[in-house]
Amino acid sequence: MTTTVTPPETTPAKKPKRSRLPKSARAGGTLHGGPIAYAILIVFTLVSLFPLFWTAVAASRDNQRLAETPPPFWFGSNLFKNLEVAWTEANLGEAFLNTTIVAGVSAVTIVVLSTIAGFAFAKLRFKGRNMLMLIVIGTMMIPPQLSIIPLYMMVAKLDWTDQLQAVIFPSLVSAFGVFFMRQYLLQALPDEVIEAARVDGAGSWRVIWHVVFPAARPAMAVLGMLMFVQAWNDFLWPFLVLTQTGNPTVQVAVAGLGRGFTPDQSLIMAGALLGTLPLLLVFAIFGKQIVGGIMQGAVKG
């Protein structure tokens, strides 16, 4: 597609300007990486991936083998047995279902609310807009952990312990989400398109449905994935209000495996592997988009 838009004949025109300088003098994006750059990157990639690889290795062994030196470096034969035991022992089937519900509801709600609010902050003029946006950014600085005690009291009062809504409700908004969508819509949605819809007599909700949502779709997908990952990996709050036997999320269940119900290390690793695998798959498939989304959110941040 791009070759048809920019014919290759036009590229040489740019080249003379660049080649004025000796190749080694330039830093930044135009320079090719040398062997040292590749070596550092490969080491860093290995360090990033090795613990995950080794989780699988340990999960395929048995407890006895993990208590010997040298530690195993390659797979044994117990993988599927361990996965099965970990699955039942940690209640992982239920945990997966619960986490999918929690992360799904949280991600979808955040995306929809953030898109609408982000649109208002990016494209509508109203009194107090800048002040309100500053407040939104300010709330990003307040860690949710400082609010857990009253939230816990609320949950106790409502008798929501061990129930999913206790985890869902506090996770429905994200200041980052509002900010992210605002930044995206500022540049991705031309004012003329909104004006045109207005001239056609569309009210604000119609504009959102027919103009904003379609224009924001790529950013909504990225934000949805980021929020899903965040909700999937959230640990402290689910750990406080859910228990391993009553409606655990994956993190609660996996942490429960590690906290003494089974001293069997290979089982713990099998549980950790199962808890991580779904997200790793998502990253393997949508990695490029997620990387792009994080970088896009960062430039304007």
Binding site: S48, L49, P51, L52, T55, V229, W232, N233, F235, V250, Q251, V254, A255, G258, A272, L273, G275, T276, L279, L280, V282, F283, G287, I290, V291, I294
Partner: peptide, 10 residues
């Protein structure tokens, strides 16, 4: 980015 996808617990 794989470590970022890995949960604290795991």
């Amino acid at each position: 980015l794989a470590p970022y996808a890995t949960s604290i617990a795991a």
